[in-house]
Design a protein around this nucleic acid. Structure first.
Lengths: 180, 180
DNA sequence: CACTCATTTCTGCTCAGACAGAACAGGGGG
DNA sequence: CCCCCTGTTCTGTCTGAGCAGAAATGAGTG
């Protein structure tokens, strides 16, 4: 029973903060906390450990883990000699955030693109044209198309390439003849 | 009374979608809907119009407008010969999202950076070092430092420079000798 | 084939955030 | 100077997400 792994003050602080951050970004607090715990855990944890460590109900942990797996940032692993499922987070930070970004794009940006195209199509065949609204929506569409196109190219680049590019800063722009 | 401006189906569709999107990103539905309405409105609207158009309480509109102003994406304007406050959204899409990104960075990313540094500092002087947690947090810190540094450089660039860079795609990388 | 252990699903409760309506404040204009 | 128009703040209600505990499912073992 109760291996009772106590969190260090630093760990607790981080997990609590991560939970609050989650809320700001539309992610359930417990889900975010569990992810934070798995992220700093030195080994895969099983549900019972999570339950005890965070003080939430087992069912809550179960559902939250399912959601995290749905996001693709937590996966089930098996530990030899233990029947229980264990869970671990993606550990590579770049991969982690790329995965989250991919998923958010799929869930939120793509449907928005679809909706904007739909709206513009309907607007086209409407009896009373509303060119102002149309213009606004078109600008939004261009924005999302441009940025997602950009993201899709970027996401394939290696972290090192990205960070090199970042560290080059404005020099990169000059090289490319894109100075402001 | 009741100028009763009715929304077109397209407008309604867009506003409702924008509201749902808001929720996904941790923004109140009504707040997002009001923003959507102001974004597509051809002229500044006063609170009463918003109340009627969206069918929400006046107080709700008042508070939501205050929040939108806090985000810096809606501002009060005065219309000649009308004592009532009128409100309009930022119309330039790039500026709009840059403003939102700036604000989210200030509210969420910067505090996270501060917290991670705090955690690492505390971890440094702890009696029992937890090098694993420390490592994870350090990686997160590097990630946030890198990406925010990158954002801070990028945010000054003109939309046209950004879209040119995007359209260049991988060629840009090759030019910079950063190919994967 | 029953029993145990692990996990998921179901059910109902709880509470925080969202909201409406009322009360309040104030500032022009008649 | 008073009253009306506009906007804000306050207060109570309500809804839905979040959650705990119970029940159900399943999987492995003796």
């Amino acid at each position: 029973m109760s291996e009772e792994r106590r969190l260090s003050p630093v760990q607790e602080k981080f997990i609590l903060h991560w939970g609050e951050m989650g809320i700001q970004w539309g992610i359930n607090r417990t889900v975010a906390q569990i992810h934070a715990l798995l992220f700093i855990a030195p080994r895969p944890l099983h549900a019972e450990e999570i339950t005890e460590t965070l003080g939430v109900a087992r069912s809550n942990v179960s559902n939250s883990l399912k959601e995290l797996q749905g996001w693709g940032i937590v996966r089930r692993v098996h530990v030899m000699g233990d029947r229980r499922d264990h869970f671990e987070s993606l550990k590579d930070v770049w991969e982690l955030f790329r995965t989250i970004a991919d998923e958010r794009k799929k869930r939120e940006v793509d449907p928005t693109l679809a909706l904007l195209r739909e709206c513009l199509a309907e607007s086209d065949k409407a009896l009373v044209r509303d060119s102002h609204t149309e213009g606004r929506l078109r600008e939004l569409l261009v924005f999302f198309e441009t940025t997602t196109g950009w993201y899709e190219r970027l996401r394939g680049w290696s972290p090192s390439a990205l960070s090199q590019l970042a560290s080059m800063g404005d020099r990169a722009l000059k090289l490319l003849g894109l100075g402001t």
